[in-house]
């Protein structure tokens, strides 16, 4: 079964990549983690997301389109990226989520993918 590993982080956390190259800086722990997922043969997909400041939200209310600057929830920790992995059960998926570098300074949410 496939699980989505959602990485929530505070964009202003200490040690976060900053400066003009922040969006393209990938640190060694993330490279190693992604490599481990590939080598285990369980990586289905995934990507980093541009910072929440670049997010735009859209809703239809009373038939009208409402477009707003910013992410869906205005919380400190924001979705920063995701992986989709395949795992036998939740405990296996949680083991992989716990190894994710983002678990050290953020929160990893594990959600089963329907279908």
């Amino acid at each position: 079964m496939n699980y989505m590993i959602l990485i929530y982080q505070d964009p202003d956390r200490p040690g976060a990549p900053a400066g003009p190259d922040a969006a393209t800086t990938i640190t060694a722990p993330w490279i190693a983690y992604t490599k481990a997922l590939v080598e285990a043969g369980i990586l289905v997909g995934g990507s980093r997301l541009a910072p929440p400041t670049t997010a735009t939200s859209v809703q239809i209310r009373d038939g009208k389109r409402l477009v707003q600057d910013g992410p869906c929830a205005d919380t400190k920790e924001q979705l920063g990226g995701y992986y989709i992995i395949t795992a036998a059960d939740l405990d296996t998926a949680l083991d992989w989520a716990a190894r994710c570098p983002g678990a050290l300074d953020g929160t990893i949410e594990v959600r089963p993918i329907v279908g």
Binding site: D89, L90, V110, P112, V114
Partner: peptide
């Protein structure tokens, strides 16, 4: 059921 919590000894 949906998250597939495994029936296994930890």
């Amino acid at each position: 059921r949906a998250a597939r919590i495994g029936f296994r000894i930890p």
